[in-house]
């Protein structure tokens, strides 16, 4: 085993943050949807996967990564809107397991659809030409694309934070996720807000799929482990908490990459151990509120 140096640790930390950035985005989408609609979206990994496929597709068709960056979340969000409006909406008021089963089934439909459209082997990806190469980050050379991942996530999180804290819709979302009855009584058509939030959450999942595509294999099954990992992040951070999603996303990314440095065979396991420890010590998650489901 190569000697562990401080530089190596720092680089691995940065790698973990880049990985964690994708987790954070995924968990934000999950958390947003759960916090507002009390829907546990089991199709979240599938939306991520569709985002990766569409990202590659739009990149090929338009030839521009930046176009794809706009088109992909728009398209995935549109699919999300349709799913909420016609599939999830009829199930509101029937208990948490109905939408859970529906989205679980939906994820299979989406996987099969991608197999039919793009084939079972998936599509080849490469880092967009503008973002290839490495940069000197002071303590070593680091892939430019992974730095971009961290920066892009920071921008998205900041934009989302501004949206939720500073805008009218953000206030409705904050109030509605605490108490949907009072916002209805104050004249808000909550079904429109739920539609918007589901669309937004799935759009972010699609965007994270696009962003993650160059760093992993794009195939119809890629969303399955991602779903499990997103749930780990959401549980660690606390269901329904956006700050929790970001902090836990980065934490899980770092734990994963640090474990891969010292004991690669345990890397997959490490994040579940982290989840178990958090659940034992703080069952509601790092930033969650106790009794959210009650």
């Amino acid at each position: 085993m190569a000697e562990i140096t401080l530089q190596l640790l720092m680089l691995q930390l940065l790698t973990g943050l880049a990985l964690g950035a994708v987790y954070a985005l995924l968990a934000i989408g999950l958390s947003l949807i759960f916090g507002m609609l009390t829907v546990v979206n089991f199709a979240h990994g599938a939306f991520f996967m569709v985002g990766a496929f569409l990202g590659v597709y739009f990149l090929t068709v338009t030839g521009s990564f930046w176009f794809s960056l706009v088109l992909t979340p728009t398209a995935v969000g549109a699919i999300g809107l349709l799913c909420e409006r016609f599939l999830v909406r009829p199930l509101y008021g029937r208990g948490i397991d109905y939408p859970l089963l529906l989205t679980f089934g939906l994820s299979y439909v989406m996987v099969e659809a991608m197999r039919v459209i793009f084939g079972i082997d998936g599509v080849p990806t490469s880092t967009p030409s503008e973002l290839r190469g490495v940069v000197n980050v002071g303590f070593g050379m680091f892939p430019l694309y992974r730095l971009f991942l961290i920066a892009a996530t920071a921008v998205i999180v900041l934009a989302l934070w501004l949206f939720i804290e500073k805008t009218r819709y953000g206030l409705i979302i904050r109030a509605g996720s605490r108490d949907n009855e009072i916002v209805r009584v104050l004249g808000i058509d909550i079904s429109k807000i739920w539609l918007l939030v589901f669309g937004l959450g799935t759009a972010i999942a699609g965007l994270s799929g696009l962003l993650a595509a160059p760093t992993r294999a794009v195939n119809p099954e890629m969303g399955i482990p991602v779903l499990a990992e997103s749930f780990v992040v959401t549980v660690v951070g606390g269901m329904g908490s956006l700050v929790g999603a970001v902090v836990a996303g980065l934490l899980v990314g770092v734990v994963f990459s640090m474990t891969s440095l010292f004991a690669p065979e345990y890397a997959e396991l490490s994040i579940f151990v982290l989840m178990a420890v958090v659940l034992l010590v703080r069952p509601q998650g790092l930033f969650g509120k106790a009794g959210l489901m009650g």
Partner: peptide, 24 residues
């Protein structure tokens, strides 16, 4: 309608709660 348990939204300021009254 002012419900029995008031339904003041936690996590929001007094001003934000008032804003909700006119938000729609």
């Amino acid at each position: 309608y002012v419900p029995e348990d008031r339904r003041i939204v936690a996590g929001l300021t007094v001003r934000e709660n008032l804003q909700l009254g006119l938000i729609a």
